[in-house]
Design a protein around this nucleic acid. Structure first.
Lengths: 111, 111
DNA sequence: CGGAAGGTTCGATGGCGGTCGTACTATGAA
DNA sequence: TTCATAGTACGACCGCCATCGAACCTTCCG
């Protein structure tokens, strides 16, 4: 109803300037969300929601994507029935210099 | 009893190699703990437990110090009745390169 | 027009963590 | 020895968040 049948589904993304450090750290402090970020880093581009290897259910994963998106860490958009995810690397770097690389590096090193 | 009257109180500190990224991020994801870290950074050295400006009670603050210590972020030792706190900057840098600076910088910038 | 694939929404649940007050211990000073 | 100061230990409480399953919505493909 809210959206005519011909309009594609859209997703809301915050400006990075509206994102707090608190949000970013909370987003990155969850192990499942870090898995997502790492897999996204390794993929080097876009990746469908269903293509991630995690130990949680689909509905839980949806929740994690939402948290990451609202923290400005990822960008999401639809292509057909698939929802593609990518990192907002440059914007994150501008907002929180060094944070994302530090976390990803530490996560990769640890594993 | 466990400790003879002449032995000074001691505090247990983990090796940084035993600290997980999870611990470090959880430690830094709390606003009160970040206040502590920032004030410690600004102080540039040691600082007594009672000299921090936070919105929580003493007992809660004790809890936060414990979390920070177990995450390898701070070192604590007694001098008389006072407990002094300092950052384990170099060790943290070796274990999680760039992490602490990124968080502190972002925190300082934001405020 | 089905039907299937890909995600989402919703409500419930369970556990963990931040918070507090109070009682306590340890040290140093009077 | 007694008091004051600095911090700790303990127990209780409360709210939040990760998790799930089930029902649902969208889009594509026969």
């Amino acid at each position: 109803m809210a959206r005519p049948r011909t309009t594609p589904r859209t997703v809301e993304h915050p400006e990075l300037s509206e994102v707090t450090l608190q949000q970013a750290l909370e987003a990155l402090a969850d192990p499942v969300r870090r898995m997502v970020v790492c897999q996204l880093t390794r993929a080097g581009g876009e990746k469908g929601c269903g293509t991630f290897d995690t130990p949680v259910s689909d509905s839980t994963l949806t929740h994690h994507f939402t948290v990451l998106r609202e923290a400005g860490v990822i960008r999401q958009h639809y292509r057909g029935t698939t929802k593609l995810n990518s990192l907002r690397t440059a914007e994150m770097e501008a907002r929180f210099p060094g944070l994302l690389p530090a976390v990803v590096t530490a996560a990769e090193t640890e594993a």
